[in-house]
Amino acid sequence: MADASSPPLATHAASPVTPINLVLLSLFVVLVYLRLKPAQPQTLPKAPPPIVFRTFTPPELFPYNGLNGMPVYLAVRGRVFDVTAGKNFYGPGGPYANFAGRDASRGLACGSFDEDMLTENLDGPLDTLSDLDAEQMEAMRGWEERFLEKYLVVGKLVAVGSDEAKAAAAHQ
């Protein structure tokens, strides 16, 4: 006979299906699924189009001013630089925007961003810069060195009608 002070005997075992166990099991299943699900294949970013060194005349260089999705190029002493990475400075609305798509040599040498520093007649001869003094030439070389350190040379600027322009047109 059972004593009145002893606990009652358990007649059946406790069920393992409890709300907390269901939550823990669900969490475990979700974690296993996330760990084992196939990963999406890695996609590499699309490579930029290759830049080919080419010969430009001033009218051919002019559209490379950052407008209409075009890259930003400018020329210094006959070298054409891709300054698209510095679009905030050389592109539309930037402080050097008037040099985009143009020969910037005289303006950089003189430290002037004025329109009168740019060659007006794009079909005319290139600016020889022969009237610049030694200090202006040194300033231009300093700019050219900075561009060489930071930007790619993508071409050469030649006058319209020159032998080099004719040869480049024949190869296109």
Results as ranks from 00 to 15, higher is better:
Ala2Lys: 14
Ala4Trp: 14
Ser5Gln: 13
Ser5Glu: 10
Ser6Thr: 15
Pro8Met: 13
Leu9Ala: 15
Ala10Cys: 09
Thr11Trp: 15
Ala14Asp: 05
Ser15Gln: 11
Ser15Asp: 04
Val17Thr: 11
Ile20Asn: 12
Leu25Lys: 12
Leu25His: 10
Leu27Asp: 08
Phe28Tyr: 12
Phe28Thr: 12
Val30Leu: 14
Leu31Ser: 09
Leu31Met: 04
Lys37Glu: 13
Gln40Phe: 12
Gln40Ile: 11
Gln40Asp: 15
Pro41Lys: 15
Pro41His: 11
Pro45Asn: 04
Lys46Ala: 15
Lys46Tyr: 13
Ala47Tyr: 09
Pro48Gln: 10
Pro50Cys: 11
Ile51Leu: 14
Val52Pro: 08
Phe53Gln: 12
Phe53Ser: 07
Thr55Gly: 04
Phe56Ala: 04
Leu61Val: 06
Tyr64His: 13
Leu67Glu: 09
Gly69Leu: 07
Gly69Glu: 10
Pro71Lys: 04
Tyr73His: 07
Arg77Tyr: 05
Gly78Ser: 00
Val80Asn: 00
Val80His: 02
Val83Gly: 02
Gly86Phe: 02
Asn88Thr: 08
Phe89Gly: 09
Tyr90Arg: 03
Gly91Tyr: 03
Gly94Ile: 09
Pro95Asp: 07
Tyr96Ile: 10
Asn98Tyr: 07
Asn98Leu: 09
Asp103Cys: 01
Ser105Met: 06
Ser105Ala: 05
Ser105Asp: 02
Arg106Lys: 08
Gly107Cys: 02
Gly107Val: 02
Cys110Met: 11
Gly111Lys: 02
Gly111Glu: 01
Asp114Trp: 08
Asp114Gly: 11
Glu115Arg: 11
Glu115Ser: 12
Met117Ser: 05
Glu120Thr: 06
Gly124Trp: 01
Gly124Asn: 04
Leu126Thr: 04
Leu126Ala: 06
Asp127His: 04
Thr128Asp: 08
Leu129His: 01
Asp131Arg: 05
Asp133Asn: 04
Glu135Pro: 09
Glu135Leu: 10
Glu138Thr: 11
Ala139Leu: 07
Met140Gln: 09
Trp143His: 03
Trp143Lys: 08
Trp143Val: 05
Arg146Tyr: 13
Leu148Tyr: 08
Leu148Cys: 13
Tyr151Met: 03
Leu152Pro: 10
Val153Asn: 03
Val154Ala: 01
Ala159Asp: 05
Ala159Gln: 00
Ser162Arg: 03
Asp163Gly: 08
Ala165Ile: 04
Ala167Trp: 02
Ala170Asp: 08
Gln172Gly: 12
Gln172Cys: 07
